[in-house]
Design a protein around this nucleic acid. Structure first.
Length: 497
RNA sequence: GCUCCGGUAGUGUAGCUCGGCCAAUCAUUUAGGAUUCUCACUCCUACGACCCGGGUUCAAAUCCCGGCCGGAGCACCA
């Protein structure tokens, strides 16, 4: 076979790395947006949209827009703090949006387009109550208001805007095809009346007519110049509805890509509103409680932005619903933090043991096994050290045990406990194949580790106090992020094994 | 009820557009082993999949039809 053919076979076998190419990107500036409702902080699920959209923009040197779709002050009422939380989590991911918009600032623009659509005869004010309209629609029958003429509709629309109607009394619909075979596309609602007021003080109760997602999103995507949209499969019909507006207005609809639902095995069904209620009841310590699937929570636990990014990019954009495990994210994260994390001894369920013949000394241990030049010093003032109870209870008479980086000892008796110092040579360790355990000095500081389901308290090296906000590895325990430090106590958040 | 998606190893993913380089990629998980003063990291090995049934074809994971399973939409939510 010709060598170039062999080469070709090899290159074709290489798997595609990263995100697949987008369609229709030639000769134009790619504009993409991420459009959350800020009714809570970003979750791991939202981070997929944050990451993939912004990565695509980076890939095509385009423009990235963060748009808060905060037009439901009622059922999914925005939280004022959440706007900043999104910006902050983006920053953590290394993304600075080129533009940021609040849909709630843009109501006049939506009204303008709505008026134009009414004038063109593509929208009407409907006075049916919800159930009436639904039964008409389900039987492909038009509602009585569908035939109103343009001036009647304009008049009623102005009355809506002026607050002349009550909530539920009127709604503006986009006229599509009342006999469309897909009931989801028949004359969908575009604006409704809400007199509750918006949480943003600059908006407050200035408006009483609010757009629904399909209208607001359609108009904004056009005004912002969005070229490509990636969103959940649940919005497939949404795209079809929005195309009616684009056709009526003579606009070109963006390229569409959808992804399926993402379920995280470790977290059950948690809704933003459900979590909010649980936090209110004190069941969680806050939005960064380590039991929650929020970006703030995994940040606090020491997950690195690079790991989350790689993880999400590797998932790609598929329409299949997927079920992922945090274990995969941990595996990704471990690769980032392992080379960077200093090693320390942390002893849980501490037991003090006395070793005959051990003299006060200063043990030296490497901060990282890859570099034995850079050593940490651990002072041992007596012949006593702390070890884990789980190691202690496994001792048998006659065992040779290595206290890592300190010395070898022999267990001469277990009940009562008695041990004697042998030496500190590595040769002895190799010859006897002693079990290696870690330890801590008797004057070690208190270390509290916040695990998802409990707080584990133990003793650790003094030097841990220098690692505030960094991720360390407690040998034979796992990785932790040092969350706070005081004189004699450190609080760490458990990252993963 | 109507409409629309999807189904490759335990999990995720590549391949499906334009059928043959696919006895199916890569990662993770699991099990062995090597290395290591950590039960971490690294390295090696192993296990493991095209939902089912037809059809088209010399040839189907890839195209067509039917079925099964899963998900979504049909809101005055996003």
């Amino acid at each position: 076979m010709a060598p170039e053919l062999i080469d070709e076979i090899h290159t074709k076998k290489e798997p595609d790395k990263g995100l697949k190419a987008l369609k229709n990107t030639e000769g134009r500036k790619v504009v993409m947006r991420f459009a959350p409702n800020p009714n809570g902080p970003p979750t791991i699920g939202s981070s997929r949209g944050m990451i993939v959209n912004s990565e695509y923009v980076k890939m095509y040197d385009g423009k990235f827009v963060l748009r808060f779709d905060d037009t439901d002050p009622d059922q999914k009422r925005p939280m004022l703090e959440a706007y900043d939380w999104y910006v902050d989590d983006f920053k953590w991911l290394g993304v600075i949006p080129d533009e940021i918009y609040n849909a709630s600032d843009r109501l006049p623009k939506y009204y303008e387009i709505a008026k134009e659509l009414i004038e063109k005869g593509h929208a009407y004010v409907c006075f049916c109550d919800g159930e009436t309209f639904k039964s008409l629609k389900d039987t492909k029958k038009p509602c009585p208001d569908r035939n109103a003429n343009v001036s009647e509709n304009l008049e009623n629309w102005e009355k809506m805007l002026a607050g002349k109607f009550e909530e539920q009394e009127a709604v503006l619909r986009i006229k599509t095809d009342i006999e469309h075979k897909d009931p989801a596309l028949r004359d969908w609602g575009a604006f409704r009346i809400l007199k509750i007021g918006h949480p943003r003080p600059e908006i407050g109760d200035r408006f009483c007519v609010w757009p629904l997602l399909d209208f607001q999103g359609a108009v904004d995507d056009y005004l912002i110049g969005t070229t490509h949209i990636i969103r959940g499969k649940d919005l497939i019909d949404s795209g079809r509805r929005q195309k009616y507006i684009y056709d009526y207005m003579g606009w070109t609809y963006p390229e569409l890509l959808h992804w399926g639902r993402i379920k995280i095995e470790e977290f059950g069904k948690l809704s933003t509103s459900g979590i909010k209620a649980s936090i209110g009841k004190g069941e969680y310590t806050g939005w960064d409680d380590p039991r929650l699937p929020t970006v703030r929570a995994i940040r606090r636990r020491g997950i690195q932005p690079e790991a989350l990014k790689k993880f999400m990019i590797d998932l790609g954009v598929g329409e299949t619903d997927i079920s992922i495990s945090m274990e995969s994210l941990y595996a990704e994260n471990r690769k980032f933090i392992d080379p960077l994390s200093n090693r320390y001894f942390f002893v849980w369920d501490a037991v003090e043991i006395e070793i005959d013949g051990l003299n006060p000394t200063v043990a030296e241990a490497p901060f990282h096994p890859s570099n034995t030049e850079n050593m940490r010093k651990i002072k041992v003032d007596s012949n006593k050290v702390l070890i884990c109870n789980s190691d202690y209870t496994k001792f048998e008479k006659g065992d040779i045990v290595r206290l890592k980086d300190l010395c070898n000892i022999e267990i001469t008796s277990v009940s009562p406990f008695n041990a004697k110092f042998i030496d500190n040579s590595l040769e002895t360790l190799k010859k006897t194949k002693a079990k290696i355990i870690h330890w801590a000095p008797t004057d070690a500081i208190t270390v509290k580790i916040v695990e998802p389901e409990r707080i584990l308290e133990g003793k650790g090296e003094e030097g841990i106090k220098n690692e505030l906000d960094k991720v360390v590895q407690f040998e034979r325990y796992g990785f932790c992020r040092i969350d706070s430090v005081s004189d004699d106590e450190v609080v760490a958040y458990f990252t993963h094994k």
